[in-house]
Design a protein around this nucleic acid. Structure first.
Lengths: 344, 344
DNA sequence: CTGAAAGCGCTTACAG
DNA sequence: CTGAAAGCGCTTACAG
């Protein structure tokens, strides 16, 4: 990479007149170094503009300083946020992020992930839904002794391995809002059943409505798949029913955006004729008219905490470890797509 | 990583009864191996489920099999597409992608990028705009002998180092469309001058209109910054002028989306009262109502070609190298946001 | 076509 | 608190 040869640990050792083991000690922040030696070595490191070769470190210590983000998620906004959070923590702790999208419908997904992890000696894997929900993958990860943290909607693993988004409590906030506005005839658009979040949001919402004296009849539940297209279709179905709902809660923003489009096409005004609520707080939510009321899932923070949790193994900073938050509660973001129903 | 010890080159050599150098030859697809030996080694590799340790390979050969994608781009859709393209090529050629967002306004951006590249011994860097436009960074990259390819709107480097999007020809297609529809009073929303693409699109559009006997007066040019917010503001300014344009071309989709929102707020109907054209073909373009007419930039393909170009150095597949396309012409995507002006 | 030796730049396990 | 030796799993440069 460098013509003007990059400095190595040997150069530093020679210049500082110590053994390379001592240099290694300062690189790795080990204890038991005299202040004088520490200072001397640090000075030389500066002078020589030395930075340790991570391949050599990795080969010797069987660490790679590489974390992997593994996902199969059609939603780029989710991925982007997740990367952002993971990256912040990586910088803090001197790691790098390798991204590894995959196809969870492929037969050999698990094998190819494992091969990838072993080839790069990945220090730890951050698993995003729906990949994070595959117990088969998890058991293979354990078999090769690979550290991992899963972003999930439910507590289905040891707490060392999950960061959880409490979708149930989140949808209960939404039902509060809807009930407070006076809506009684509410439609719901569900996500694909292959996603745990879709189930949690649906069951949580149904439960929350019942707790508040309302119901969510099956003919008010449309089956979407988290896409814009499905949001449009579900909205059409709900709004063309004999007694159309006065509010629609779509279990993600893409589908809610589809609801808005369909309503516009049908000449239905939002929010006066129809209240629409999404779930995600995607960038587009604030960039439509009317701006979409939704839930902020704090994906970036969740991903950062997942990364921090992954690195506790290599990090003896107690304060940092203690700062890890395992469960996240989404935040309600009120914008312009909700209002009281017309005849109330 | 593995409790049940992963196989090494030595295990393969022993089982196949050859030297490890021979195993190395098959790993690296070298010539001059007898068919019998090749077969024998390959079989053992399969049996042992062996995959070479990329750290050891890297340390010995000063390669890392790691490519970096370096960017400072507020547009997640662009990044996502670029990653997708790069990743496809990485898989093809056995590399991995490390992502490295950065802040191009930071004083130490160049230094931190160089440090990162040297620390990981990155095999090559894919530079996205606007980072790709920094000549200062390029010269530092050259100084440390780091291979790179830039995604750019202009030819400002050796052809080995660029993949170009021909923004000028693209906007000329847009002016064709607008002129064919009969628009004469056209507004333009410019991107931030720090982006070369913003300049190319503006100058290209002005030139194209002039070539067709029209003009783009300065009072029809609004200064945006590629954000939705600026698109709204610019649209307000243009539409509140004494003789509002019958068509607005925004130099990216985010701003065009802002135009649509402002038009809606003002009660202006699209496309009958106002034609709107964007540039990017972002996912949202087809998810608003009316769906946005725009240009597909082929970012994923550009990024894939950039990656392929980067890897030619390590790859002696002539056919693959010959398949590299250096210049891309965006494709016009007609949707529902354009129509003839009202009184024509 | 194949192999033995040395070395890439670090860390581990020990010794003192 | 510090260091000498061996080794991580490969490739390079040679030799034959």
């Amino acid at each position: 990479m460098t013509p003007n040869k990059k400095a190595t640990i040997n150069d530093v050792a020679r210049h500082a007149d110590v053994s390379k083991k001592t240099v290694s000690r300062v690189i790795n922040n080990e204890k038991n170094i005299s202040a004088a030696t520490l200072h001397k070595v640090k000075t030389v490191i500066q002078q020589l503009n030395y930075s340790p070769n991570s391949q050599a470190r990795g080969l010797a210590s069987s660490r790679s300083f590489l974390l992997a983000m593994i996902y199969d998620n059609p939603n780029p906004d989710y991925i982007t946020e997740a990367m952002h959070g993971a990256l912040s923590e990586c910088r803090l702790q001197g790691c790098e992020l390798v991204i590894h999208p995959c196809d969870s419908t492929a037969r050999d997904m698990d094998e190819s992930i494992i091969e990838f992890i072993q080839r790069l000696k990945i220090d730890g894997a951050i698993l995003l839904p729906p990949v994070s929900e595959s117990e088969r993958l998890i058991s293979k990860l354990k078999a090769v002794n690979c550290n991992y943290v899963r972003l999930l909607s439910v507590d289905s693993d040891n707490l060392d391995h999950i960061i959880r988004c409490n979708d149930r409590q989140a949808v209960s906030q939404i039902s509060d809002h809807l009930v407070a506005l006076g809506h009684k005839n509410i439609g719901f658009i569900q996500g694909p059943k292959a996603y745990q979040s879709a189930i949690e949001r649906k069951e949580g919402f149904r439960q929350a409505l019942e707790d508040r004296g309302l119901t969510l009849p099956e003919n008010r539940v449309a089956m979407g798949d988290y896409t814009y297209q499905s949001g449009m279709e579900c909205a059409e179905w709900l709004l063309n029913s004999s007694r159309p709902p006065t509010a629609i809660f779509a279990s993600n923003d893409q589908m809610a955006l589809g609801v808005i489009t369909t309503a516009k096409k049908m000449g239905i005004n939002i929010p006066t004729d129809l209240t629409v609520i999404g779930f995600d707080d995607s960038p587009q939510a604030s960039r439509v008219w009317p701006a979409l009321t939704t839930m902020d899932l704090h994906i970036s923070q969740m991903s950062q905490m997942a990364t921090r949790k992954l690195l506790t193994k290599y990090n003896d900073d107690k304060a940092l470890s203690a700062s890890i938050q395992t469960e996240f509660l989404p935040t309600f973001i009120q914008r312009q797509s909700t209002a009281r129903p017309k005849n109330t």
